[in-house]
Design a binder for these strands. Structure first.
Length: 457
RNA sequence: GGUGCGGUAGCCAAGUGGUAAGGCCGAGCUCUGCAAAAGCUCUAUUCGGCGGUUCGAUUCCGCCCCGCACCUCCA
């Protein structure tokens, strides 16, 4: 079954295809909008990246790992990054390096495959400037009085096709008096002229005839995808919030500059909610991966919880859903141990991949997974199970709670209780169990000994 | 106001014009001295409300109620 995915532009399910499957050099090109590195990424951000990671895995299973090229950018210069640098009184690069490192750590913990390239906006200034110059030459952009460059929306009649927002509606809603020098309020910035009071020392030489400054946000993705993947990419994805204006603007810039289709397929994943509303700093209702790990939840459980709802539906995140995820993962872990390591004759877990191939239906995939498990298929092997888990990106071994060692006082109590139990002095054994529990540890009796684990919350 | 999405068991969540996957929680049982783990079994005559189409609708259509998101730099 081909990989079918909802396309945001046509609003239909469409098969994802390599345009030239007979060409050995042809690869499937996949661009996903990445994070802005100025603060910790919250798990809402990671819903997008985890969903896209499943997509990447499916593409690899479908075409072969060598036939997929996945690019995800890092926005390391914009109002927010500059604002954060200014606030902390540190160079912009310090801030963005710091948050990039933490972002990568979280990605690794969530078992996301590393993109083939992770370009940064500051690493592609020249490409962005070049693109702006082409747009100026073609008449799709103009220089403003302050030296900024804007995209002239009226030169691209197809604008709004993705978001279905018409220009006149934009103007109605644009109530903020625009302080800059646009011809039309709908026009968006390609290049922002340097403002000493706001930008500190962040500036580059601008496009021909423009002032020094920095690129606008939207142009970076257009320039980096062009540089790394070519004029037309097979799949472009991101969170729904990017649909307008970011992706709409990317289409306008890229298609006017390159004269060809920008992306063959658009995919947007929905938001993660907390307490029924979207996460945000101002509401104070967001979680970071670190928060959850510190509370004792495992990264695979977080990944599971993020995939527990259909990616194109809003998902309300709760600690209950994390508990459920932890339990489900324990079941998977125990089940895996029962599977033979023999070669598989029937791919009994095939329905899991099929569910994923049907518009990335992750909840249905989990359903299929457990249905098969509950059937106790005699043909099930570890290899077929692991293939299913690979597609979902679940690393079960990483789910085992951190092997914290009990304090010596607790170990001593445990030794005493074990001895008492061997001597069949059950009254003493029970009393010692209580003490151990009171100290925050569970003593789990095994056949030939015992293990100690922190008491579960 | 515009655009889009959704309302399915205690919680989460798939799905279909032909009579409701799955996970969690809970209950019972088995096994263990106890506990835990593991295994087995059970848990929606019903899919926001009211109409319509149909032999038949949770699934299609209309209206209504409720919730959420986006509307210029938020994944």
């Amino acid at each position: 079954m081909a990989l079918r995915l909802h396309d945001s532009l046509t609003r239909r399910l469409q098969d994802l295809r390599r345009p030239n499957p007979d060409d050995a050099k042809d690869v499937f090109t996949f661009y996903c909008c990445g994070p802005t590195v100025y603060a910790p990424a919250h798990i809402g951000n990671f819903r997008t990246f985890v969903v896209n990671d499943v997509l990447r895995r499916l593409l690899e299973l479908e075409y072969g790992a060598a036939k997929v090229r996945h690019v995800r950018n890092l926005t390391d210069v914009d109002d927010r990054t500059i604002g954060q640098a200014k606030k902390e009184g540190r160079p912009l690069g310090d801030i963005t390096r710091h948050w990039t490192k933490l972002f990568h750590e979280d990605c690794a913990a969530l078992n996301c495959l590393v993109p083939h390239a992770e370009p940064t906006a500051t690493g592609y200034i020249k490409e962005q400037v070049n693109m702006i110059e082409v747009l100026l030459q073609k008449g799709n952009a103009y220089r403003a009085a302050d030296g900024s460059v804007y995209f002239k929306l009226s030169t691209f009649p197809e604008y709004g096709g993705l978001s279905r927002i018409r220009e006149r509606e934009l103007q109605v809603t644009n109530t903020v008096a625009d302080a800059d020098h646009k011809d039309s309020v709908s026009d968006f910035a390609l290049w922002k002229a340097y403002k000493p009071e706001e930008d500190g020392d962040v500036r580059w030489p601008g496009p021909d005839g423009a002032a020094p400054g920095r690129p606008g946000w939207h142009i970076e993705c257009s320039a980096m995808s062009k540089a790394l993947l070519g004029d037309t990419i097979d799949l472009h994805s991101g969170g729904v919030d990017l649909l307008f204006p970011h992706h709409e603007n990317e289409i306008a810039q890229s298609q006017c500059c390159n004269g060809t289709t920008f992306a063959r397929h658009w995919y947007h994943s929905e938001h993660l909610l907390v307490d029924g509303t979207t996460m945000s700093k101002s509401k104070g209702n967001y979680y970071t991966l670190r928060d959850l790990l510190d509370q004792g939840y495992s990264a695979p459980a977080v990944r599971y919880a993020l995939l527990a709802g259909h990616p194109r539906k809003q998902l309300n995140f709760t600690l209950d859903s994390l508990h459920a995820a932890e339990s489900a993962i324990r079941t998977l872990h125990a089940y895996r141990a029962t599977l033979p390591t023999t070669e598989d004759v029937n791919d009994v877990f095939r329905p899991v991949q099929e569910a994923l191939h049907d518009d990335l239906n992750t909840p249905a995939a989990f359903g299929a997974l457990f249905t098969i498990i509950n059937r106790r298929e005699t043909d099930a092997t570890r290899a077929s199970f692991d293939r299913a888990l690979f597609a979902l990106g679940l690393d079960l071994d990483a789910a085992s709670p951190a092997q914290t060692t009990a304090p010596s006082a607790v170990t001593a109590l445990a030794e005493q209780r074990w001895a008492a139990k061997q001597a069949k002095d059950f009254a003493a054994a029970d009393a010692l169990r209580k003490e151990i529990t009171a100290a925050g540890w569970s003593m789990l009796d095994r056949k030939d000994g015992y293990t100690l684990e922190p008491v579960k919350k």
